[in-house]
Design a protein around this nucleic acid. Structure first.
Lengths: 192, 192
DNA sequence: TTCTATCTACCTAGTGATAGATAGAATTAT
DNA sequence: ATAATTCTATCTATCACTAGGTAGATAGAA
């Protein structure tokens, strides 16, 4: 412990996450990471013994920090419209401004070649996220849980699909086009 | 020419396409393909000299056969609702019944590591498809071209996102959930 | 005789992973 | 307090294997 030099372990995760969102599971090697961190590949293995471990750790950290940033959907003092809008804007920032895919979109498309553990983590991530969105829609539109889940699925699908469209066409405009229904639907009350 | 034994060249494309939709660009090798076809890897190179050539050929064939199957959007004898529904159902068959990603979703997520030529083909594919969908929406809802493109973007995003959701959660139900708005919206007149 | 499609054999460059050494920090024993 | 020990994080060197790609031979068809 002590002076906390910039932790190599999380530096590795940062760089691995960057490589994954740019090219997926098979598009980087331990040597790539080692070079970027400034150590040797054997030292990367010291921190994460296998590639599966490494990707699993990236996913776990992502999930943890993702949900830590989300507000409590049942907090009555928060406007559900603003929560949804914040969520959409956060997603947009990632895929339009940074111009790469979200970690989960990328890993999901790689699911067939991923260690099984990562597959489970992915599924859990989506379940949790859909649940979060559902609760907000239930509040926002005073609907039952099933309908909330449907709304949540639609929004989440639109967001992921929008990122494919932006990436595939190289035209960031498609993000707003694909999301226009939701933007209109979820304008914060302050603007109505 | 002549007796047309089952063409090795297209057998290679079939198998390559299968590998790509299952795991993406980096998840298969010439040796994998050779083994599946029943020849040696050097013989695969005879037909497609580089991996970029091969994937490019897969994409070109896919694009060609995809658009050959689409009806003429301006054909007044065809019901636009049925065309949209047929499109959705075709997509669903691919990703829900066959349980893998569409070639384009997969390649788009791999775009960062793809040969540039394939990137251009992908962009062209999406432009063409969005145009096709736009024309139908313009007819269906008697709207202008810009609004047609917005509808088209939304539907296409929903479809791609639905495939991510299905793959990520392992729950095929999410396809219909994510698409329910469009199914309701585009019921063929015969059922109204 | 030339063309087509295949083969065997190989190359170079990388892959994930391991073994063993080492310098220095932290901990424990005397 | 100091000496002995263990732990941490790194290294060098290497393994067995796979990658995409190439050269050259060959059998059969045109």
């Amino acid at each position: 412990m002590g002076v906390e030099k910039i932790d190599t372990k999380s530096k590795i995760l940062d760089i691995a996450e960057g490589f994954i969102v740019q090219g997926g599971y098979n598009a980087f090697s331990f040597r790539d990471i080692a070079e970027a961190v400034g150590i040797k590949s054997a030292s990367v293995h010291y921190h994460y013994s296998t590639k599966a471990d490494l990707v699993s750790a990236v996913m776990a950290r992502y999930t943890e920090s993702f949900f830590r940033q989300l507000p409590d959907p049942t907090d009555e003092s928060l406007d559900p419209k603003i929560m949804i809008n914040g969520f959409i804007d956060g997603f947009k920032a990632k895929i339009v401004d940074q111009r790469d895919m979200s970690l989960c979109t990328m890993l999901t498309s790689n699911k067939g070649i991923l260690p099984e553990s990562v597959g489970h983590e992915l599924a859990a991530f989506y379940q949790f996220l859909l649940d979060w969105l559902s609760r907000i829609f239930v509040r926002l539109e005073k609907i039952d849980e099933d309908s909330g889940l449907i709304q949540a699925s639609q929004l989440l699908a639109c967001l992921h699909g929008a990122s494919i469209l932006v990436q595939g066409t190289d035209k960031p405009d498609f993000f707003d086009k694909a999301l226009s229904r939701w933007k209109a639907h979820c304008l914060p009350s302050s603007l109505l």
